[in-house]
Structures are given as C-alpha cells and as structure tokens.
Simulated scan of single mutants.
Amino acid sequence: MNCAVLLVLTVWFGSQCGGNALSSSCPAPPSEWCSSMDTAIQCGVLKHCLLSNVTRSHQTENAVEVGLYYESLCPGCRLFLAEMLFPTWLLLNEIMSVSLVPYGNAKETPDGQKYVYECQHGEQECLGNMIETCLLNMTRMAFPIIFCMESSTDVIKSAQSCAALYSPQLNWDKVMGCVKGDVGNQLMHQNALMTEALNPPHNYVPWITINGAHTEDLQDKAMTSLFTLVCSMYKGTKPAACGGPQKTSYKTYCHNK
C-alpha cells in the first residue's frame, strides 16, 4: 500500500476512534511531538502533525537557504547567531532553512586515521565546535540548543543545561561520547571539507551564504537585516510576517458586562 495512503488512513482511523486525545504514554516533550510518526501516534497528535507537514511542504518548496560558517567562541559569530539568525528563523522558519557549520578559521591536521584540530580561540573553542557538531547530528533541536549556548555567558559550561532545556530526552553522556570519539572526529572533518570548499574561499567569520552563494553584498544585507533579505528573496507567497496576507484576525475582545 502507498505510504501516503496508509498515513491518511491511519489519521482517519485515529480521528474516528478518538485518537487525538493526548496519550499518557507520550514519550516526548511538546517540541518533539512531530519528530516521527511513532512519536506523533503515541502522543495522539498524528493528524495535527500531518496537516502541519503538508502546509509546511508547500511553503518551503522555494525556501531561502541560509548557511552560517562560524566558530563557537568568535564574538561576531555569537552575536550574529544569537541576535540575528535565530530570531529571524523563529519568525520565518516556514520559508527559510538554516545550515550551521561550526569550524570557521580552524586548522585540520591528519593524524593516522583521525584528525587533530587547532582553533582560533584555543582548545575551548575546539570543544565548543565539537559539541555543536555532535548536537547537529544527534537532535532535531540542535539549533535552539546552540542558540542557548551562544547567547549565554559561558558557551561550554551552558551546553548541558541548554540541551536539557530544549531536548530533555537527549542523553548527555552520548553527546560527549560523540565529542570524544571517532564519530565526532569524522563529523568535524566533514565540516572542514565543507568550509575548505567554499567558493569564494572564506577569509573571515561569520561567513554567510544565501542559497549556496556568497557575495559581499549578500553578506552585508544579511548582517544588516537578515529578515528583510529572506523576505525579499523568497519566491513563493509571502507569509504574514513579511507583509503577506493575514490568515487570522486577532480582533477578538472580552467585553466588560
């Protein structure tokens, strides 16, 4: 049977049997209810997730792709990520996608089957880069966690508490296993390859790409107002946040009787 048909039948059956009531066996926090079909079913929100995904798929066909090549302790990177990129994504995530590449101005040296890294701001930055790289590979909530880290006073010390806040199900020991092990080393190698493949080559960070391209004009516009840039470059129907049609009226009042 076609998977889409099966999914629709599952939604219909669940709605007929009262399946939208939140299940007591729900294994995830609300932020992750739609992370998989199994989780959505267990949490009783499959119909909502399906409708949400269908709507999002139509809106993101021409999504503006924003790439950020950065390093975890670079002051300018932290400022852009925390005060420009993340807030813009919160408002426009239906029409933009974000790709984070924590590596920046690091240097990679082969050491047998592994690689050794030297980072611009020292060993702590290498650790921050590696933690954020592993998070990006291990959880759908990586971006909020990284925002939490980068906007905190201490990027490294806040990592575990930020992860617990945004992804309570995430096992921190497993994250650190990635950080200290072969998986993290190979993931960072991929970051190095992506950074080295930039065209034109990066000569500072934060280095921003829009739909895979970097120009000084795009960089300046992104640094000045990423929100305006994304709205202007999106080719589909503009969302309400960009000045598009409002779908909901908020003119509802509670009168004093």
Rank of each mutant, 00 (worst) to 15 (best):
E83C: 04
S72F: 01
C77P: 12
N62D: 08
C49L: 09
P30N: 12
L85P: 08
A21W: 07
S24T: 12
N53H: 13
P30H: 10
G44Q: 12
P27C: 04
Q16D: 12
P75V: 08
L68S: 07
C74W: 01
L85H: 05
P29S: 05
L50P: 06
S15G: 00
C34S: 09
C77R: 01
K47P: 00
L73I: 00
S36K: 01
S23V: 01
P30F: 15
T60F: 00
C26Y: 04
S36M: 12
S52I: 00
S31W: 10
G44S: 10
T55P: 00
M84S: 15
G44I: 11
R78A: 03
S57D: 06
V54T: 03
C77L: 08
S36P: 05
F80L: 06
C49A: 10
S57G: 00
L46Q: 01
C49G: 08
A28K: 14
P29R: 02
L46M: 01
C26D: 14
N20L: 06
G44N: 05
P30A: 14
L79P: 00
M84R: 11
E71M: 00
W33H: 11
Q16N: 09
L81V: 04
L79K: 13
S24P: 03
C77N: 11
E65H: 03
C17H: 14
E71I: 07
S35I: 13
R78N: 02
E32N: 10
S72W: 04
V45M: 01
Q42T: 04
